[in-house]
């Protein structure tokens, strides 16, 4: 039952939210419009000038998208990006969730110091790790292989994912563990049957960002996988749309949307997990 007063009272809320969203959308909208314009139009006038006659389709071109989509090797590089991102994302989320669970709810010597160490390592710039690691990778025959890059991405993402998941898992109410422990459930059972289900929103948000960062990575892939077409990710194909002097950069406007399409679809499909958690209904002790 909503009265007209409560509807009226909510107007400022809607105004604030929509204004914020428009502000956030504006730069992206600019890129979207630009991606449908010719280089001479881009140079000659601001992108918003098309809004004067938004339905005059002569001012648009799909040439930039054609230049990206018919790029030789784009399909293969999409597949490579998936082969890199999906296993690496799940691997890092699971390794991190295991660790976060133990750090939050188990007692063991050095727990605090180790946790601090893991988190502090977030700040290590990954560029500094390449040269010490690569010779070892060569010896282990890991360079140029997908498992090699899964491990690397897992490692670089671990500190942050562990930290975030720890903050969720450590805030779970204590009693759910106590009752399970009394029932004689093993920690592994508790992890899969209690921790994972109640952490779905947290896991989903960590997964999506981990996926995104790996999907958008170029440097780590170049270092550990190399740039041969059979392993190179979509970010390399996109970067190579432009000549070494920067010519054809307008293709990058279209490429930005083509390469962001999949992460966005993943985000939309994960949205149903970003719902009120199971625990939100129960009262904390």
């Amino acid at each position: 039952m909503t009265s007209w007063r409560s509807v009226l009272a909510r107007i400022p809320l809607h105004v604030v939210i929509i204004a914020f969203a428009l502000l956030w959308l504006l730069p992206t909208l600019g890129l979207l419009v630009t991606s449908f314009r010719t280089p001479s139009d881009i140079f000659g006038s601001g992108w918003w000038t098309v809004l004067a006659h938004p339905f005059d389709f002569r001012q648009y071109t799909i040439q930039n998208y054609i230049g990206v989509i018919y790029r030789q090797g784009l399909g293969r590089s999409f597949l490579n990006s998936l082969l890199i991102s999906v296993p690496a994302t799940f691997l890092s989320a699971f390794v991190a969730a295991f660790a976060a669970f133990a750090f939050a709810w188990m007692e063991f010597p050095g727990r605090r110091a180790l946790f601090m160490l893991v988190v502090a390592l977030m700040v290590v710039p990954l560029q500094m790790t390449f040269i010490p690691i690569l010779p070892i990778y060569r010896r282990l025959h890991l360079s140029g292989t997908f498992p090699g890059i899964w491990l690397a991405h897992t490692a670089y993402g671990l500190p942050l994912t562990t930290y975030l998941l720890h903050s969720f898992i450590s805030n779970l109410p204590k009693d759910i563990f106590d009752s399970a422990s009394i029932d004689g459930a093993s920690p592994l059972r508790i992890f899969f049957h209690i921790v994972v289900p109640v952490s779905v929103p947290a896991l989903a948000s960590v997964l999506i960002f981990q996926f995104l960062w790996i999907w958008n990575d170029l440097l780590v892939a170049l270092i550990y996988l190399g740039a041969t077409p059979n392993v190179a990710p979509v970010t390399l194909t996109v970067a190579n749309l432009v000549t070494n002097r920067g010519q054809n950069w307008e293709l990058l406007t279209a490429a930005a949307f083509v390469s962001a399409a999949l992460p966005l679809v993943v985000f939309f499909s994960l949205q149903r997990y970003f719902v009120r958690g199971i625990l939100a209904g129960s009262i904390k002790e």
Partner: peptide, 11 residues
């Protein structure tokens, strides 16, 4: 609000 995170730094 999420879109910017999905767009690469080059974009």
């Amino acid at each position: 609000v999420f879109v910017p995170a999905a767009i690469s730094y080059v974009g």
